[in-house]
Simulated assay, not measured.
Amino acid sequence: RQNTDLAKKLDTLSRGISVIAIVIIAVLFVISLFIISNTIKLTVYSRRLEISIMKSVGATNSFVQLPFVVEGVILGIVSGVISLGAVWGIYELAVSRLGDVFSSIGLVPLEFKNYALIMLGVFVAIGILSGVGGSLITMRKYLNKEGSEISAI
């Protein structure tokens, strides 16, 4: 028995969901860059005296940026792990709620734990990329604008 209409509808639905997912991921990536950038700005502001002292004794910009980049990496790793936990929870909830629908059309849900390690790697990599990117952008702006001269509190 052929269900070409059903197959076409499922294919269209799958493509639509993929496009929506890519758009959501892009928007969330930009939001994460913004949040990390603002977090680093607050940290830079609270450590501006230390940065000024470091610059006055001859520290290079990369030496000043390094602790903030490490902080961005740590934020990225933590956010990747939290993201995996959230996705896992939502997936298990969806499978438990929609299990009857899946079984009625003859689909068997995938085991999440088979893909968890790969997803963790991807989430952590994206988190590190956004953390380092947000840190470097913020620090570069600060060092070019205010960090090049000694500023008193």
Rank of each mutant, 00 (worst) to 15 (best):
F29T: 14
E149R: 13
K41L: 12
G99D: 08
L143W: 00
K113P: 00
G58Q: 05
V81H: 03
I74S: 11
I17M: 15
S46Q: 13
G72Q: 02
L120S: 10
D5N: 11
L10Q: 04
V101W: 12
I36L: 13
G72V: 05
F29S: 14
V101M: 14
G131T: 04
G131V: 07
K9C: 01
T12S: 11
R97L: 15
G134K: 03
M119L: 15
S56M: 13
Q2F: 11
I82C: 09
T43S: 12
G131M: 02
S79Y: 01
G72H: 01
G133W: 10
S37M: 05
V95Y: 02
L66E: 10
V73C: 10
I153S: 12
I137N: 05
I22H: 06
V70N: 09
R48L: 07
F63Q: 15
N38W: 01
K55H: 12
F112P: 02
S96A: 13
I105V: 15
I35R: 02
I105S: 04
R140P: 04
V122R: 04
F112S: 03
I153K: 10
I118R: 09
Q2P: 13
F102L: 15
Y91Q: 07
S104M: 14
I137H: 03
I31N: 11
I20Q: 11
G76F: 00
G58R: 03
I74E: 03
I74V: 15
V95E: 00
G72C: 03
S79C: 07
Y115G: 07
G106I: 11
I105Q: 03
L136Q: 05
G121V: 04
F68T: 01
G85D: 03
L49C: 02
V108M: 15
F34L: 11
A86D: 08
T39F: 08
A7I: 10
D11N: 00
F29W: 12
S18V: 07
S148M: 10
L98Q: 13
I20H: 03
R47Y: 09
L66P: 06
E92Q: 07
E146F: 12
L13W: 04
L10M: 13
S103Y: 14
I24Q: 13
A116K: 02
G99C: 10
E92W: 00
R140F: 13
K141D: 00
G89V: 05
E149P: 01
E149W: 09
V70G: 08
A26R: 05
F34P: 00
A7K: 05
P67D: 07
R1T: 04
G127E: 03
V132I: 14
V95I: 14
A116N: 06
G72A: 08
G121T: 02
A125K: 06
K55D: 08
R1G: 14
P67E: 07
G106Y: 07
I51C: 07
V95M: 08
Y142I: 09
Y142C: 08
G85M: 05
